[in-house]
């Protein structure tokens, strides 16, 4: 009887979130799997089955592969850039100021910088997009190009040149993400006992040695979490590409990303079946990656 009450109590708490999760997350996933095997156009009540033809179509879809290539690029560039910048900044903010009175401190004004770094994180992605429209604007009204024109240089088509457009968008993603990881790593660094640093400093370790031999190994867990977060974010990119890119994913599909392709295929071309197949492909990419990442980066935990 008591057990029943206990379980009833727990179930009572869990029921609502589980139902919500099943209804709003699991069930759409299941439906996407089902729809990916049909040729549903979005408005009929009875889609007809088309077997795996949507999936075989994916293999010949140039734009799909272009988008996949972009995600691979993001997968490499985004964590690398964001994590190294964030580590660098947080090291400066927390330990980079050298020691004073036997204590390690951040650079001058680090409290102020910490707040400033976090600003972009507070802005909605759409706002960041609009902001960078102004930054990248191709004429003299653009912040960067205005400056270039003012000093007599040719303006650069940040978003209109296929060779740089995607990098321009990656730049925005990095700008927006760095602040969060600076704060995350700062917290991680704060958790490392100061005496470890001080002992190393006493032994004559410089800033570089401190960073690579102490901070980095002891931050490994946090770093790993950040890497997985960013890698999952690398499978998105919808909002920024939608707001910033020329011709939705252009020029010449150079900024195509899967979420936007899925959205175009479903809502512009009314090919919900095919879009679902893309979604399922994206689902497996993300899952595979997350599992791989967790496996590969597993490491002995250091207790202190």
């Amino acid at each position: 009887m008591r057990r029943l009450r206990e379980y009833g109590f727990i179930t009572g708490f869990l029921a609502i979130p589980v139902i919500l999760y099943v209804v709003f997350v699991i069930s759409p996933y299941v439906q996407a799997f089902y729809l990916s095997l049909t040729d549903w156009g979005g408005v009929s009540a009875f889609p007809s089955f088309s077997g795996f033809s949507n999936y075989t179509r994916l293999f010949e879809d140039e734009v799909f592969w272009k988008a996949v290539r972009n995600h691979v690029l993001l997968l490499i560039a985004l964590p690398l850039l964001v994590l190294s910048l964030a580590l660098f900044f947080s090291f400066l903010l927390n330990l980079g100021g050298g020691s004073k009175g036997g204590k390690l401190r951040g650079v001058w004004g680090s409290k102020f910088y910490r707040v400033v770094f976090f600003f972009p994180q507070v802005l909605a992605v759409a706002i960041v997009g609009v902001l960078f429209q102004a930054v990248y604007r191709p004429d003299e009204g653009g912040i960067i190009n205005g400056a270039l024109i003012a000093i007599g240089l040719e303006p650069i088509g940040w978003l209109t040149e296929p060779s740089i457009a995607f990098w321009a968008i990656i730049g925005v993603m990095v700008w927006q993400a760095v602040g969060f990881y600076v704060v995350l790593f700062s917290a991680g660094m704060a958790a490392i006992p100061k005496d470890v640093f001080e002992a190393a400093a006493l032994d004559g370790a410089g800033r570089f040695r401190l960073f690579f031999s102490i901070t980095l190994p002891l931050l490994w867990d946090t770093l790993q979490v950040g890497w997985i977060y960013l890698s999952i974010a690398a499978f998105d990119g919808f909002a920024l590409v939608q707001v910033l890119s020329v011709d939705r994913g252009g020029p010449d599909n150079s900024t195509a990303v899967l979420p936007l392709e899925i959205w175009k295929t479903a809502f512009s071309y009314s090919e919900f079946g095919y879009a679902s197949a893309m979604g399922v492909a994206l689902f497996f990419m993300t899952i595979t990656f997350a599992v791989l990442a967790l496996r590969v980066s597993r490491r002995e935990k250091i207790e202190f």
Binding site: I19, V25, S27, V125, A126, F238, Q242, R248
Partner: peptide, 26 residues
């Protein structure tokens, strides 16, 4: 179409389903 944010679109991709029949069982 740019006026649509990501959340809206994802919601639509996944959840067109649940706007289907307000009266129908979940």
């Amino acid at each position: 179409p740019r006026d649509i944010d990501r959340r809206q679109a994802l919601r639509r991709i996944g959840l067109t389903a649940f706007m289907a029949g307000p009266g129908a069982g979940l």
